[in-house]
């Protein structure tokens, strides 16, 4: 296993090599854009990095803050509702066996349906606007988190639960002190995974119901064939996703310090 004190971290080398990687990637991008600038080939519209940077600065000076706020509002509302609903449903379906047997197959059947496929229905049901976007984001987050919630609610071994009962914990105490914390720990992982699917769904919802937000800006610059601005907007999406994920990692480490190794991805 790679976890534990054996893992040495050399920040100087990591930063140097990482910088090399970024520089090489930018150079390749620049070279490609120069080669493809004359048209021809399939990709004849690759903007050079400076053009994208110019658009990025221009966007940051004008509507970025406002669009970002609109997107984040949709995301926060949908994500919170989705996580809360999935926790409740997960506890219910995970702990009550009959309910789980009846409804988990239904949940499993809905999961492979892309969130974008719900767009027409959500527009018919909730109209264009805030509610329909929250529905889409909430649904996407719910379908991710419920798997973790069900898993977490079943994770406490029956032995532990019986031992607790023998030691005099009543059903309510067992729920509050054993099952609930176990479930919430797992829900937290699901909540982190769902950050990206929720944020992706915000884009989808805004691409289709394009009235406000980063996605609406993305589709409007796409329709005016402003490729540099399209790439600049994509960078804004990526950067805000990255910041969200980083904030969540910090929060997770505060809440559950023993789970450090789970939070690490390929950033050794």
């Amino acid at each position: 296993m790679t976890s534990g004190p054996a893992r040495l971290f050399v920040p100087g080398r990591a930063i140097a090599l990482g910088t090399v990687g970024v520089v090489v990637a930018l150079a390749v991008w620049w070279l490609l854009s120069a080669l493809l600038a004359g048209g021809g080939g399939v990709i004849n519209r690759l903007p050079a990095p400076p053009a994208v940077a110019t658009k990025l600065v221009a966007y940051a000076r004008t509507e970025l803050a406002q669009d970002l706020a609109a997107s984040l509002r949709v995301f926060a509302a949908g994500w919170l509702i989705g996580v809360a609903a999935a926790t409740l449903a997960g506890l219910l379906l995970g702990r009550v066996n009959v309910l789980g047997r009846i409804f988990l197959p239904v949940v499993e059947a809905i999961r492979p349906v892309s969130s974008i496929a719900w767009v027409p229905l959500s527009i018919v049901w909730f109209g264009f606007g805030f509610t329909s976007k929250i529905f889409l984001v909430g649904l996407a987050v719910f379908l991710v988190v419920i798997v973790y919630a069900v898993d977490g609610s079943r994770r406490i071994p029956a032995d532990v639960s019986r031992a607790a009962a023998m030691l005099g914990m009543n059903a309510r105490q067992r729920f509050l002190h054993l099952i609930l914390p176990g479930t919430l720990a797992e829900v937290l992982i699901g909540a982190r995974v769902s950050l990206m699917s929720g944020w992706g769904t915000v884009i989808v919802a805004e691409l289709v119901a394009a009235d406000a937000g980063l996605g609406a800006h993305l589709i409007s610059v796409q329709q005016s064939y402003d490729v540099a601005a399209v790439v600049a907007t994509m960078i804004c999406f990526g950067a805000s996703g990255f910041v969200m994920n980083a904030l969540f990692t910090v929060a997770e480490r505060r809440l559950m310090p023993w789970r450090r190794t789970h939070a690490r991805e390929i950033d050794e």
Binding site: L17, V42, Y225, E268
Partner: peptide, 29 residues
Amino acid sequence: RTFRLTASPVIEALRFIVPFAWIPLTVLW
């Protein structure tokens, strides 16, 4: 390890641009 340290910032950065955000660009291209 060398390759990992070199490439992971770029991969991490691209990873956060979710596939949905690429749709308008792939339509243009």
